[in-house]
């Protein structure tokens, strides 16, 4: 799906805007990286796209998904789009799964929301999608509670939950930051493969330009709620125009 963001600003209360005049275009099947330090407004931007900011957030500008304007839609309309047309993978696999529910049921519920009366088909879908994200023991995993799984396993479950309805756009908010390096590489590969297989467009957020470069070829750099530079990642690496981008590239080289 194509995504067009124009002049997006978000402010909380009377504080200075957390996101200011952000704009970018994402073509069907394209992947865009969003790079920036902690507090630069990456998560606020992605939540604004999903319509998931708290009510007291003032959001202005335009977000259009395949030509449909999302800002101003009510919760009911947005709930139909979320999961089905666009979904999201969060940073903290430890907290992004409901501790009171078996993970299989959580994925099944996500599927049923958009396929009511699917019954046994939902259970089948759960195992299929768990297979796809690399579990060889899908049935056992689906019967586990989140605390019985490792961080990498949980992040794969979250990925399964995000793709179970085959959305055209997936937003990844630092999906590997909480994982150790080896698991991180594994999950990144899995994300890359999943995106290739489904042809979904993706917004991939990270503070680490090296991580972004493993999934995307193009990226925007955010700082203080604004986009300060954008272009092909190779270009950002070799000829960073903004001093901040240069600092990010150096930081990545050290990591």
């Amino acid at each position: 799906m194509s995504l067009s963001v124009r002049d997006l600003s978000v402010a909380f209360g009377r504080r200075a805007p957390a996101v200011e005049s952000v704009g970018f275009e994402l073509a069907d099947g394209e992947r865009l990286g969003v790079i920036g330090e902690s507090g630069s407004g990456k998560s606020v931007t992605s939540l604004a796209l999903m319509g998931l900011l708290p009510e007291y957030a003032r959001v202005t500008g335009s977000v259009s998904l395949d030509g449909q304007e999302l800002l101003g839609l009510g919760d009911r309309e947005l709930s139909k789009l979320r999961g089905e047309k666009m979904s999201m993978v969060f940073q903290e696999p430890m907290t992004a799964l409901d501790p009171t529910m078996r993970v299989g049921r959580q994925i099944a519920e996500a599927y049923r929301l958009h396929h009511p009366r699917s019954g046994a088909a939902a259970r089948e879908q759960v195992e299929t999608v768990l297979d796809k994200v690399g579990f060889t023991d899908a049935r056992r995993v689906s019967l586990s509670y989140p605390h019985e799984l490792s961080g990498g396993q949980r992040q794969r479950v979250l990925l399964a939950m995000a793709v179970v309805n085959k959305p055209g756009l997936i937003i990844f908010d630092e999906p590997t930051t909480a994982l150790d390096v080896l698991v991180q590489a594994e999950v990144l590969q899995l994300i890359d493969a999943t995106l290739t297989a489904t042809g979904a467009s993706a917004l991939f957020i990270s503070h680490n330009i090296a991580v972004v470069s493993q999934v995307c070829t193009r990226a925007v750099v955010m700082r203080g709620g604004r986009i300060v530079e954008d272009g092909p990642i190779a270009e950002l690496f070799e000829h960073p125009k903004h001093p901040y981008t240069r600092a990010l590239v150096e930081a990545a080289a050290h990591e």
């Binding site: 939540l47 969060f90 907290t95 992004a96 959580q106 939950m161």
Partner: peptide, 26 residues
């Protein structure tokens, strides 16, 4: 404030369903 509420919402769970399915049990 927990991510699992956001994650459920991001999958398309409406606010009332989120209340029953995720908030109450927790």
């Amino acid at each position: 404030a927990e991510d699992y509420v956001l994650a459920a919402r991001a999958s398309g769970t409406s606010a009332p369903t989120t209340a029953i399915r995720h908030v109450l049990p927790n």
